[in-house]
Nucleic acid binder design. Structure first.
Length: 479
RNA sequence: GGUGCCAUAGCCAAGUGGUAAGGCCAAGGUCUGCAACACCUUCAUCAUCAGUUCAAAUCUGAUUGGCACCUCCA
């Protein structure tokens, strides 16, 4: 598989160190709802994991839940995000963390994002952080100033490798609202452990050799990854914003701790933007999965929308685009549903099937070209030399990666009313009622009472079904 | 100020030197009592300029425009 590696800035052949791919993905900070931009990264990671499996690599994946408060910035005047969330909602930080962790996974579920095999909370690993920081301290990579333990960037080389920046080019505190921590020897030094809290009600704090406090915001991922995946990680993912400083600092501390290279591939997902730029929780409309649902969109439309683009391209969200994706997705689903309802004894050309399977794999193996993978899906649907049965086998197989719920079981039933064949798809409990309406409508049509027939069609639609007058049969399917 | 990414039809988007995939929309048509669905047909020379080459959307340089990163962030 070919994958873009942020470390080398190029596409490289990915080969796991030993058989199983050890994959670490930075998880959410659970202080608020995730917006669909946040979710785009998890979507990318989901597709990556599933693609690896599809291509034959077993995957062991770990993700953290950041439930410990991170400061809004590294200096003294930032606000603690968890605490801010708690204040906003009148809950304890622990309640906030639990609530938003749950909603995060619910959102993921709606987008068919599989929960990673290992999910670990930051607050459950304080002992590991302390142990790691102590080890770094013993090796001389840290210093203590004004109550906080800092990582000393000057002690290592290659600090800027991942970000591809030059130290002299980096401006400190260039963004508004970011101020410089005067205790640092170098502006790039970062906090490993805080003991100084200006928050009187700081709820999350722990005993440590440096005093009561809480961990810095880079140490958790490294420590959790080390504990569950061992000393070498094949792929470490996150959003592009994590490249600097989060992942940069992770490399610094983890490799200093280990004394050798830690992560082989760094993979980053680009952001979802709105028309004015990067989507954020504080600016513009707060686009959540629930909001999309409220507006009548199936969350999987959003998944389809993202799959149509490349994970390393910035993608601009607009309702127009979502609408397009939504239509395309519904069409796709209906087309496949219909295919399932039509029995067809076809001739088999195994080579043909293999060609598509190979093309699909090639698309994925080409740095996750999901857009082309979707094209292969459409090619399969269009292929006239294959039977529906074979096509559906491929569709089901592709959906292991695409996860667009293309494989949904169709409950079909053929019923003859008089001379007319009626095909019911997913009729469920409304079956009898539907049949009665279909029957009435047929009679109305025979009597050329079209206004009555139309009224009956509307009734059927009101029940949530579509009726199609085909040549050989009337098709009634759930919308 | 520094750095990086990007610019393909109304929209999304593939393409990485050999003459523009795919999807949505739109238009015309077949079917239909009408409609929906389905199906068929049509719909771009790739931001601009210059260069390299037998050949460029694809390489080089410049220009213009957009976005991002430079300690909240996916």
């Amino acid at each position: 598989m070919e994958l873009y590696n942020t470390l080398s800035k190029r596409i490289e052949e990915f080969v796991p160190e030993n058989g199983v791919v050890k994959m670490y993905t930075c998880g959410p900070t659970v202080y608020h709802y995730a917006h669909i931009g946040n979710l785009r990264t998890y979507l990318f990671e989901d597709v990556l994991e599933k693609s690896l499996r599809y291509l034959g690599y077993p995957v062991k994946r770990c993700m953290n839940i950041t439930d410990v408060g991170h400061l809004e910035n590294d200096s003294d005047d930032g606000e603690d995000k968890m605490l801010k969330g708690a204040k906003r909602e009148g809950k304890t930080v622990w309640e906030i963390a639990e609530h938003y962790t749950n909603t995060f996974f619910k959102d993921c579920e709606k987008l068919n994002i599989q929960k990673p095999e290992i999910v670990e909370k930051a607050t459950d690993h304080v002992a590991e952080y302390i142990q790691m920081i102590q080890a770094l301290e013993a090796k001389g990579y840290t210093y203590f100033a004004e109550g906080n333990v800092y990582f000393d960037v000057s002690k290592i080389t290659g600090y800027f490798e991942l970000s591809g920046k030059k130290e002299e080019d980096l401006k400190v505190a260039v963004r508004e609202g970011v101020s410089v921590d005067q205790n640092k020897k170098s502006p790039f030094d970062f906090v490993l452990w805080f003991t100084k809290s200006k928050f009187e009600h700081q709820a999350m704090k722990w005993e440590s050799p440096w005093g009561v406090g809480y961990p810095g915001w880079h140490i958790e991922c490294s420590a959790i990854a080390l504990k569950y995946l061992g000393e070498r990680v094949d792929i470490h993912c996150g959003g592009v914003d994590n490249i600097f400083p989060h992942h940069t600092n992770e490399i610094a501390q983890a490799e200093s701790y280990l004394g050798h290279k830690w992560v082989d591939f760094w993979c980053h997902g680009e952001h979802l933007n709105d028309q004015s730029g990067k989507m954020s929780k504080s600016k513009g409309e707060f686009l959540t999965v629930s909001l999309l649902e409220e507006k009548g969109y199936n969350p999987l439309c959003y998944r389809y929308f993202c799959l149509g683009s490349h994970y390393r391209n910035q993608l601009v969200f607009s309702y127009e685009s979502l609408e397009m994706a939504s239509k395309a997705y519904e069409k796709l689903i209906n087309r496949i549903k219909e295919m399932r309802s039509i029995e067809e004894e076809g001739k088999t050309d195994p080579e043909r099937v293999e060609v598509y399977r190979r093309k699909f794999k090639e698309a994925l193996a080409n740095d996750l070209n999901t857009s082309n993978a979707l094209t292969v899906l459409y090619e399969v649907l269009k292929d006239e030399t294959m039977s529906n049965h074979e096509k559906l086998n491929l569709v089901d197989s592709f959906d292991e990666v695409l996860s667009l719920s293309l494989t949904e079981e169709v409950n079909e039933e053929k019923i003859t009313i008089g001379e007319q064949m009626v095909m019911l798809i997913n009729a469920g409990e409304e079956k009898e009622e539907l049949l009665a309406l279909v029957d009435l409508r047929m009679k109305a049509k025979q009597e050329k009472d079209f206004s009555r027939a139309d009224a009956l069609r509307e009734k059927i639609e009101a029940l949530g079904f579509l009726i199609k007058d085909g040549r050989d049969q009337i098709l009634v399917s759930r919308k």
